[in-house]
């Protein structure tokens, strides 16, 4: 029983990171139909910026703010330079564009920060043991921030007028423009949100899972699978998808084989796309047609 709880908890912590990355995918896709393959790089970049800011003597909270702000700027610049100028954006075009940005960001990180993996220091170092289950304080921070951020993003997209206006851009671009919603501004805001959420994921995960120039690839893949599990347009679905993926991975590693751990995400992706293309929580997506 202790083992199960320990594995479940590790899975939840890992899943929270996937959920944050997945929110970034959804935040952009739900507005403009763009799939942003550089989402994982946002996280890696934030981790690396925070580590070097910390190494240069800034206090941890300042380093985190610097990292999140830097990535937010990168996300906005990326949108203006590569997404906004394209007149007829399709999902395929967006994949090619963002893959290019992702590769460029990776090369840049390798040049600037070198090839070694490093970890940011934890917000609260140490562990606490509850009923035989060891819990890192950092895990609690990850879960807390993930909960607050996902609630905030969900509230913004589903409950505020601005958020609904953003979603309208994907549903009915022409009608949205007719009622005075700027598609360009909507896309920009969605990238800003994705940048901030991705950066938070990177900064939070760095103390536990470490960051290197290439850690964005795995994070991006897992986050994308999590978002797809949720149908790619639902924040709630993305969060649930992240947790399901994290827990399934850890349980597979613990009870079946550690070698299968990374295969879980992709097996799950294939099954879901074949059986329930709207996502495992896909009622939502089907009903919208």
């Amino acid at each position: 029983m202790t083992d199960l709880l320990q594995l479940l908890f590790a899975g939840l912590s890992q899943g929270a990171i996937y959920a944050l990355i997945a929110i970034g995918f959804v935040a952009i896709f739900a507005v403009s139909g763009v799939i942003n393959l550089a989402q994982g790089e946002f996280a890696a970049l934030a981790g690396l910026v925070a580590i070097s800011a910390r190494a240069s003597g800034l206090p941890l909270p300042v380093a985190v703010v610097v990292a999140v702000a830097t990535v937010a700027v990168v996300a906005v610049v990326m949108e203006r330079l590569t997404i906004a100028p394209v007149k007829a954006m399709t999902t395929l075009v967006s994949l090619i564009l963002t893959l290019g940005v992702s590769t460029a960001l990776k090369a840049l990180m390798l040049l600037v920060y070198g090839p070694n993996a490093e970890g940011l220091e934890a917000i609260t170092p140490g562990i606490v043991t509850v009923a035989g289950v060891s819990i890192r304080y950092q895990d609690l921070w990850i879960l807390l921030v993930a909960a607050v951020v996902s609630a905030a993003v969900y509230w913004f997209y589903d409950r505020t007028v601005t958020g609904k206006a953003l979603r309208a851009c994907a549903e009915q671009p022409v009608a949205a423009r007719l009622v005075g919603i700027s598609l360009g501004r909507a896309s920009l805001i969605s990238f800003l949100i994705a940048g901030i959420v991705g950066a938070l994921a990177g900064v939070l995960s760095s103390p536990v899972y470490f960051t290197s120039w290439e850690s964005g690839l795995a994070l991006g893949l897992k986050g994308f699978v999590a978002a797809t599990l949720g149908g790619l347009v639902s924040i709630r679905g993305a969060v649930l998808g992240g947790f399901v993926l994290g827990v399934l991975e850890t349980l597979t590693a613990g009870y079946v084989s550690t070698g299968l751990r990374d295969a879980v995400a992709f097996l799950l992706l294939i099954v879901v796309l074949v059986v329930r293309p709207g996502g495992i929580f896909g009622r939502h997506a089907e009903a919208r047609v």
Partner: peptide, 8 residues
């Protein structure tokens, strides 16, 4: 929506 999601 679902088809485009799958292709995407």
């Amino acid at each position: 929506r679902t088809r485009s999601t799958r292709v995407a």
